[in-house]
Design a protein around this nucleic acid. Structure first.
Length: 253
DNA sequence: GTTGAGCGTT
């Protein structure tokens, strides 16, 4: 595997983050690493991907250990043609936590425990959270939303069906969450109310098991192929073992 | 298989 911290950012306390724009949607961190590593110590490379499609969003973050090396990389790699497109390298303006970067340096994620007074203050919400960016607007590119609609039109039905049944209280445990009985019952009623087939306790207008299985011939899974590299982060130490595992050639997609 | 302003992950 060639990714640094699959459990989040490894150590960004003393790193300088660079924003790499205009890369192709097929460029991976493995492609960027040798380029940027030539100009300094690259601590981590992260390419944000779409949470639904999992594809690259067209930009990357390269974190250097030293600002001078990062500056050099900006000067040397800005405008460089990578994979057919001229990338744009610049210092990141915001940190991973949507906090402003101080002099190009990534500030610590959580500076320190400054008491709970900070927790009480309304934390500045991100410029666009996931639900807003990926589920409401989800249109970083104008022509993309039509693709999304066309592509996920058939899946949304299944997703809704699953979501209606995905209320598994066992997974939530009892941590902090009180009695889910009442909550679940009220929730279920909400669903019934929202359901087009609003039925009275005495009169069932429509919910008769007329059809046995509308989704009989629908395969729930039809995708499972990786385009190029499933990893999103590259590691200098893991780059050596980045070579494919000694598996059969026909085994990979 | 597609697209092209922007600022990020368990």
């Amino acid at each position: 595997m060639s990714h640094f911290g699959r459990s989040g950012p490894p150590d960004i306390k003393d790193t300088f983050s660079l924003l790499v724009l205009n890369i192709t949607f097929r460029t991976t961190a493995d492609d960027l690493f040798p380029l940027f590593d030539k100009y300094g110590k690259v601590v981590d490379i992260f390419i944000p991907r779409d949470r639904r499609t999992g594809e690259s969003r067209g930009f990357a973050f390269v974190r250097y250990k030293y600002a001078e090396e990062a500056q050099k990389a900006v000067e040397k790699l800005d405008g460089r043609n990578v994979d057919g497109r001229d990338i744009m390298v610049q210092f990141a303006k915001y940190g991973p936590n949507a906090e402003p970067i101080k002099k190009g340096r990534v500030v610590e994620v959580f500076p320190k425990e400054k008491g709970r007074s900070r927790s009480r203050s309304p934390r500045p919400r991100y410029r666009d959270s996931y639900r807003e960016r990926d589920y409401r607007r989800r249109s970083r590119s104008r022509s993309r939303e039509r693709y999304d609609r066309d592509r996920y039109r058939g899946r949304e039905r299944d997703r809704h069906r699953i979501r209606s049944r995905s209320l598994s209280p066992d997974h939530y445990g009892g941590r902090g969450r009180g009695r889910y009985d009442d909550d679940r019952r009220s929730r279920s009623r909400s669903f019934d109310s929202a359901s087009p087939a609003r039925r009275s306790p005495t009169t069932r207008r429509s919910w008769s098991p007329r059809r046995s299985s509308p989704f009989a011939d629908k395969s729930p899974e039809k995708r499972g192929h990786a385009k190029r590299s499933p990893s999103q982060s590259v590691s200098p130490r893991a780059r050596r073992v980045d070579s494919r595992s000694p598996r059969h050639s026909s085994d990979e997609d």
